[in-house]
Design a binder for these strands. Structure first.
Lengths: 166, 166
DNA sequence: TTAATCGTAGATATTATTTATCCACGATTA
DNA sequence: TAATCGTGGATAAATAATATCTACGATTAA
């Protein structure tokens, strides 16, 4: 059971974009530099996020990415599903049907109870993720510390703008 | 996010072993044939389960595997952790610290809130798995159907015993 | 005692997936 | 019109999962 690095990158990028002032954008290159990760790889996840309606893109010079909706309307589940895909972690390959001594077919009219239990756990996982929004993350950060992700995003954007002005 | 096939095999094997009569065992080869999977690969998982104290082994001719404790004392979480390892699915690589504009160090005295949220979801997942035992699975199966995993395990064991007698 | 059977452990191959990179393309705007 | 950006697909490299094999030690039925 493992979650790809893309999830961490995507959540941090979304949080950083939440700190932008109205109309502001950050390019994929700027986001990658900001987080110290590969631009071309981050691009893949950013496209997944824009495809899922979490981010939107502004083409052309001075273009980039920004949030497609309010931080409080973006849950961690939205991001995880966009990046990792909707498939559940547990997949039943029906090995109960593969043995040498076949059971009566009516035994299989009900779904595998093991699968049902595993998916129940996964629903609990997703429910918890769905109940946490990007806005919640930002609120927890700024509640007890002056150096929040949002503020850092702003600082970096200014840096980026200065660089572009040169 | 993905769970290995070993989890499904391990749970089904544990359920099958729950159906054995007192003192009965099933060899790794028998369990593999029963489920139609590779013996040598299943072996790896069975060893993990016995190492975790879920199964125990009986060596020698007529040896094999059996439960090390009662079905109601074996949770799905026990099995998942034994097979997949205890590491959480989400791992924070602290990309927030990697950017070009370092933040004041005191910003990092608190753990990453994103990580905290992801681990909170994972705790919910594990709690749900911990609350379901092998006995629960068997009960749900036999509640409304005569062909339960336990009964099938018995039938197969008898088949296996007959084979050994020859 | 002996030979068969079983599990243990580690090494190793094979396959699949993830991660990462690159390039040609179309859209937009200074 | 030229620079900059995102899009999308192809592709390579790295990593992890899957699967197999071999030698070994323990146990027990004959």
């Amino acid at each position: 059971m493992k979650l790809g690095d893309g999830v961490e990158q995507s959540i941090h990028c979304t949080a950083a974009l939440s700190g932008l002032s109205a109309g502001g954008v950050l390019s994929a290159a700027a986001l990658a530099e900001f987080h110290g990760v590969s631009t071309s790889y981050l691009l893949k996840h950013l496209q997944a996020l824009s495809g899922a309606g979490i981010l939107e893109t502004v083409p052309g010079p001075k273009g980039g990415y920004r949030l497609a909706k309010r931080p409080e309307d973006i849950s961690l589940l939205d991001i995880v599903l966009a990046v990792e895909g909707p498939a559940p972690a547990f997949r039943c390959s029906e090995i109960r049907q593969r043995g040498p001594n076949p059971l009566p077919q009516r035994y299989f009219t009900k779904p595998c109870q093991i699968t049902a239990a595993m998916l129940r756990a996964e629903r609990a996982y997703r429910a918890e993720l769905a109940s946490t929004s990007i806005a919640d993350i930002l609120a927890e950060l700024s509640a007890d510390d002056d150096g929040g992700i949002a503020a850092r995003g702003c600082a970096f954007m200014e840096l980026h703008e200065r660089k572009a002005a040169r």
